[in-house]
């Protein structure tokens, strides 16, 4: 096993840029900083895995950690290792949106992101919208019956939450545009539209 706790997430971009002969050549070609093909010095990029790697992340405000092989996706780490099951595995190929989570403020398909890539990240799942005070998005879904089997719902709810966080004054059309990466099979879209109208009227 060759493990480390991983570098700080935003660290590399702020560390000193490389210099060297290669970089000079690159500068001539118009390349700067990180893009330069420095011949040396050559800082080591350590190998992680193939054994389990420590992954520490923040999930819904809680600092969690687990060890998983490099091949384990964020989705599987959440579901199988951290028992965070609001994100669902449906297509497992970055198409259907049931696994949608917010990583550092942006929605991603957690099935298509390696857990090691999420080290140090701030991850938000649908569970963050529950608890004592129900978030307006799931509340609108419940009010308008915008769910049937409910398996796709957490993904839709997270996508809408992110869209409204980005633009609290979003129109229903803009919210709908944020849902082109989510699929429902029961056919709850008509009721979902009612929920979106309710949310936009209330201003997110």
């Amino acid at each position: 096993m060759n493990d480390s706790t991983g570098e700080a997430r935003s660290g590399p971009s702020r560390r000193g840029f490389l210099t060297g002969t290669g970089a000079a050549a690159a500068a001539a070609a118009g390349l700067r900083g990180e893009l330069a093909p420095a011949a040396q010095p050559n800082p080591a990029a350590p190998a992680h895995g193939p054994g389990p790697v420590l992954v520490e992340l923040t999930v819904n405000g809680n600092k969690l950690s687990t060890t998983v092989e490099p091949r384990v996706t964020l989705l599987d780490a959440l579901r199988n290792h951290l028992d965070v099951t609001g994100c669902k595995r449906v297509c497992d190929r970055g198409t259907c949106g049931a696994c949608t989570v917010i990583v550092d403020g942006r929605t991603v398909y957690s099935c298509t992101m390696l857990a090691v890539e999420a080290r140090g990240a701030d991850v938000k799942t649908a569970e963050a919208l529950g608890g004592d005070r129900l978030d307006p998005v799931p509340a609108a879904f419940a009010d308008c019956d915008a769910q049937q089997c409910g398996f796709c719902t957490p993904g839709f709810v997270v996508s809408i939450r992110a869209a409204l966080d980005k633009n609290p004054k979003a129109t229903p059309e803009q919210v709908e545009a944020a849902l082109t990466g989510n699929i429902c099979r029961c056919g709850t879209y008509e009721q979902m539209r009612h929920a979106i109208v309710q949310l936009c009227r209330k201003g997110g």
């Binding site: 330069a36 420095a38 190998a47 090691v116």
Partner: peptide, 14 residues
């Protein structure tokens, strides 16, 4: 998925 070793270099040079 077959397992692998994972590297995350900080620069293209690395």
């Amino acid at each position: 998925m077959k397992n692998f070793t994972y590297h995350r270099p900080a620069t293209v040079a690395a």
